[in-house]
Simulated assay, not measured.
Amino acid sequence: MDEQAFYKVTYGLYVVSAEADGGRSGCIVNTLQQVTAEPIRLAVTISKENYTCELIEQAGRFAAVALDQRADLPLIGRFGFRQGRDFDKFSGLPIERDENGMPYSTAAACARYSCRVTETVDLETHLMFVGEAEEAEILSEENPLTYTYYRTVIRGKTPKNAPSYQRKV
């Protein structure tokens, strides 16, 4: 099987975040997608090893921002390659909260979404959270950051916990 073919599946890059029991965190995902129109539901898949996954389970909610092409490697690295249990990923960034208190950063973000989890699917290494959208807002008119742009223009890497990670052979 040519695993490189999976790089042709189109994705955006998002920061999904949550807060519960005094902890807050967020992580980069390329697996956020709209799955129904009425009601509007989004699904996101997150590694069980990520602190953000634990927080979404506890809170029963998540916030997400669509990153735009202004996102740089330090911002992506902060949310994609740092551990939220050991580091406040939001420190020093512009932070807002949705109506239910979920934090999100507006740094290099073109849209935001807030969801109440309605279903959780166990995928062995990851959990898929299906959430009913309760809020959505355009934050800028910048172009969304696609995974292709991230890999080819920014020349970013994929962390081991990402669903699209491919081990080197």
Score class of each variant (00 low, 15 high):
45 T>V: 13
134 E>Q: 15
55 L>G: 01
8 K>V: 02
76 I>T: 02
40 I>L: 11
41 R>K: 12
147 Y>T: 00
147 Y>A: 05
118 T>L: 12
19 E>A: 15
106 T>E: 12
159 P>I: 04
23 G>Q: 13
11 Y>G: 06
71 A>K: 02
135 E>P: 01
33 Q>Y: 10
91 S>G: 14
108 A>N: 03
60 G>I: 04
13 L>C: 06
41 R>H: 11
127 L>N: 11
39 P>D: 03
136 A>T: 10
166 Q>D: 06
168 K>P: 04
120 T>R: 12
141 E>P: 03
98 D>P: 00
130 V>C: 08
68 D>I: 11
7 Y>S: 12
51 Y>F: 15
39 P>Y: 06
157 K>M: 08
61 R>E: 06
144 P>W: 01
141 E>Q: 08
23 G>R: 13
54 E>R: 15
57 E>H: 14
92 G>L: 09
109 A>D: 02
60 G>D: 05
46 I>D: 01
50 N>A: 10
51 Y>K: 08
126 H>Y: 12
113 Y>G: 00
143 N>I: 11
155 R>C: 10
74 P>A: 15
110 C>F: 03
122 D>N: 15
60 G>M: 10
95 I>G: 04
91 S>L: 13
98 D>L: 05
100 N>T: 13
135 E>S: 06
165 Y>Q: 07
70 R>D: 14
127 L>F: 15
112 R>E: 03
38 E>N: 12
168 K>T: 11
100 N>M: 08
90 F>R: 07
31 T>P: 02
134 E>C: 11
114 S>E: 04
101 G>R: 03
92 G>S: 08
96 E>N: 15
32 L>G: 00
77 G>T: 12
155 R>L: 10
136 A>H: 15
138 I>V: 12
110 C>V: 08
156 G>E: 04
96 E>V: 08
55 L>Q: 09
160 K>S: 09
108 A>M: 07
14 Y>V: 04
162 A>K: 02
115 C>S: 08
27 C>G: 04
33 Q>M: 12
87 F>I: 09
75 L>V: 09
82 R>S: 14
48 K>A: 06
50 N>Q: 10
98 D>V: 08
109 A>Y: 00
129 F>R: 01
105 S>K: 06
125 T>V: 10
48 K>N: 05
164 S>E: 12
103 P>G: 00
64 A>K: 00
116 R>D: 11
72 D>R: 14
7 Y>M: 09
156 G>H: 00
122 D>M: 08
159 P>Q: 05
50 N>F: 09
107 A>M: 10
32 L>I: 06
127 L>R: 15
150 Y>A: 01
73 L>I: 14
27 C>M: 10
137 E>A: 10
11 Y>L: 07
58 Q>G: 03
7 Y>T: 13
29 V>A: 04
65 V>W: 01
160 K>A: 13
53 C>L: 07
1 M>A: 07
100 N>A: 09
12 G>C: 02
167 R>M: 11
48 K>M: 03
156 G>M: 08
20 A>Q: 06
13 L>S: 02
122 D>V: 10
157 K>Y: 14
126 H>C: 07
36 T>S: 15
72 D>Q: 14
61 R>Q: 13
143 N>S: 14
27 C>A: 07
85 R>Y: 11
147 Y>P: 00
154 I>L: 15
27 C>D: 00
93 L>I: 09
169 V>S: 08
31 T>Q: 05
39 P>T: 05
122 D>Q: 04
21 D>Q: 14
56 I>H: 03
67 L>T: 10
129 F>N: 05
45 T>E: 07
